[in-house]
Design a binder for these strands. Structure first.
Lengths: 335, 335
DNA sequence: CTGAAAGCGCTTACAG
DNA sequence: CTGAAAGCGCTTACAG
């Protein structure tokens, strides 16, 4: 069967294509009877408007693009789910590009989306102000996620890593641990830096007599393991270890177990992210949870607002809270 | 700045729009010198062809749509990654719609994509032959993933759940377990049914004296826990339990532990999927791994082939193997 | 309310 | 090789 166009519907309903268009888009400007006839004809012919033609004339694709890095499972799927749910609720389509591992690839992906989307959601460590200036036309609304870019023309939506890390430090102090060490994430990673900052700030404020004790890591389980061994070699062993993400906490836990230490009896341990594994390792891991679905949803809604009223509000920076999840690894329950 | 169109480039390069089009699309049909001038003009103006206009005239969107259900984290992200990697390699865009929890929603999502995509990748339990007939035009190439639909006009790509389950049964028998129970998944789930089938077939073939021992579950951890309790109440306790997915195996393991049993010393346990948790629970879980990235990649490549040569080959059904991952929970290493 | 017509930006026979 | 022109399917002022 050949494609059904608006002309076919017009012929079937015995009206002009203009009336078909009006009847099908909101139904205003046509009599009830005409609208009825058009809708029947369209249904009968299984008419589906050609998206490209409409896009060409309206300059609207009703599609938003999401530029995502190569993310680990849980975060990735939750984020997409949040974005997708909100997009569907608004009748927006979702064009996705993920898994680039270089600035060049990210740039290519971003450019390839131009002209196909009404706005962009961008989460990528390769993205900075300069990158955006040369790869994103000013006319294209965009919301940056977990981005260090600030004071820019773009809206930014970040997770409150500082507050989350700070809250965890306070919790560890509350439980009675004073010497709290921190296993940091990759230096170039924005989340990692913020968590580091939160740890240091909280220590300075709530445990002023203690000095910060930071071991470097790279978010991998392996680096957590190594950090664990390093911590055990320190003259004065810390009472608690706070890892900048859960995977490092898992690695660190293995190092402690191998050394014959019990968690949390001999040493407490906490992570960040609340990945599923956190609930299943023994002991279960106390950590900081990020509401990822909300992150995606909020980002899309912010972008949708931008699409509705392009220049209404100046670029804003929004921050999403996170919450502490208390489990067994910190000893909060055993005292 | 107003949008740059092909006219602007033509003016800048002092040629006709036809020549610009030819120069930019493959460069054939123009002299080297003209091509050069056009490319320079396009670069200077930062010209990006309007996707919709091109789509309208070429009838090609270079976009493929993926209809996905609400999938759990790891599977979802791996699948998208596989699809995305293969799509990018071919210059195809990816339009995604996920998280529908009803036939109506899935149908709406499928229809909404029409006219925006050149082909569809479909993974959804709501999809059967009738659904496709009424929601997918025959002219739109599609590849079905993990689908029970057969003998249809559509290409199907399935995971070899039967072989995977069968291989696991053989492994359990090899290790020395004879009385092997099976915790089944949801009845309406295709994967679940295939795994059940594989278990029964392997038992009949390799342990003909044993009778199949199937407890129902629904893929949730909770149902695995309940199944575990039920198994412990049987007069003759099984020597090994094979759960149709890892989450149920985890739940079952908890039931055994609470009952004071040791895995694998008192009873062996195996799962299916190889989710990350399988590596981190204690004891680590023996399971069947599905190469999900390959599933996504293969599906996209099959679809891409369909796009290249629409009616070359008749609809095919392809099956992707899976592999056994031996860990601690089955006692294979302790003997 | 209704229809004829212009035009969105591009590609592709068709002449030259 | 090059350009003028038609046309993809739709929406939207503009008349009536």
């Amino acid at each position: 069967m050949a494609t059904i166009t608006i002309k076919d519907v017009a012929r079937e309903a015995k009206v002009s294509v203009a009336s078909v268009s009006r009847a099908l888009n909101g139904g205003t400007g046509v009599t009830e009877e005409t609208g009825q006839r058009v809708r029947e004809a369209a249904a009968k012919l299984h008419y589906i408007p050609h998206a490209a033609a409409r896009m060409l004339i309206t300059r609207r694709s009703n599609t938003i693009g999401a530029l995502l890095p190569d993310l680990y499972g849980e975060f990735f799927s939750e984020l997409i789910r949040g974005i997708d749910l909100a997009a569907r609720a608004r009748g927006l389509h979702l064009l996705i590009s993920s898994s680039h591992d270089g600035v060049a690839e990210a740039a290519a992906a971003l450019r390839a989306m131009q002209g196909r989307v009404d706005g962009m959601l961008i989460l990528s460590e390769h993205v900075d102000a300069a990158f955006l200036r040369s790869n994103l036309p000013e006319s294209l609304p965009a919301v940056l996620l977990n981005s260090a870019v600030k004071n820019s023309a773009y809206d930014v939506l970040n997770v409150d890593n500082v507050a989350g890390a700070s809250a965890m430090v306070r919790h560890l102090l509350d439980v009675g641990h004073q010497r709290i060490a921190f296993i940091a994430g990759p230096e170039h990673n924005f989340d990692a830096r913020q968590r580091d900052k939160g740890y240091r700030a909280a220590m300075a404020r709530y445990a002023p007599k203690m000095t910060a004790n930071v071991i470097s890591g790279d978010f991998s389980e392996e680096s957590g393991y190594r950090a664990g061994l390093e911590l055990l070699r320190q003259k004065t062993r810390p009472q608690a270890v706070f890892a900048a993400n859960d995977m490092m906490a898992v690695g660190c836990m293995n190092a402690f177990k191998q050394a014959g230490l019990s968690v949390p009896e001999d040493i407490a341990l906490a992570g960040f992210d609340d990945i599923p594994i956190a609930r299943y390792i023994a002991p279960t891991l106390t950590t900081v949870r990020v509401r990822i679905v909300d992150l995606g949803r909020t980002a899309l809604e912010r972008l949708a607002a931008l699409l509705e009223a392009p220049d209404q509000s100046p670029a804003s920076a929004q921050t999403l809270g996170c919450e502490i999840v208390v489990r067994e690894s910190c000893g909060a329950n055993v005292r």
